[in-house]
Amino acid sequence: MGRALRHALAIAGKDLRMELRTRTSLLSAAVFAALVLMVFNFARDPTAVATVDLAPSILWVTVTFASVVAMNRAFTVERENGAFDGLLLAPVSRESLYLGKYLANLAFVLIVEAITLPLFVLFFNLDLGGALPGLLLTLLLATIGFVAVGTVFSAMVAKTRFAELMLPILLLPFMVPPLIFAVKTTVPLFAGRPLSDVLPGLRFLALYDVAFVTLSVLLFSAVVDE
């Protein structure tokens, strides 16, 4: 295993171990997702709009905000006891450091989504059936991209006084393009259309991932080096 990857996995493993010990961000994000789904469930009028038409938007709104809640903690844990200085001081490339934090964030958000999806099916009484593989692929592609951007922004805002408030303000505009395409992909999938019908949307999400993962790796050093 390469040295850079070894460092990244050590950092990601540290974040996962700390999170599994405290469950602070996973628990708060999962509870948040459940509450949002519950509010949407009771606030909608099922006779006015068909569930299948409304469900994609509700799913993505829930995933978006729950993900922001999960990512908020990524760098706030590094503020304790100046621990981030220890990472910056180590002979670890900034790319490895980014990759480690990114992998941990990606794992957190995917876990939150894995909790959210069954709740979503339960609340809205949906039969995903054949839409499930396409939906999982869409979730994965959208998550890869916005977590990449979220990791950079959570590093940027960690030293500010209102980090929890700043992260969504900075991140949400960058999440709009993948969200638009994620919703556009999810709508036909829920309507029972085949995966081949949503390939353009999936291609856009893949393109967004390549562009923003690359940009985030390049920008991270400038963000963390004072």
Partner: peptide
């Protein structure tokens, strides 16, 4: 440094 650079959860 002034701070321990140690993670409280580890």
């Amino acid at each position: 440094s002034h701070q321990s650079l140690l993670y409280d959860e580890l």
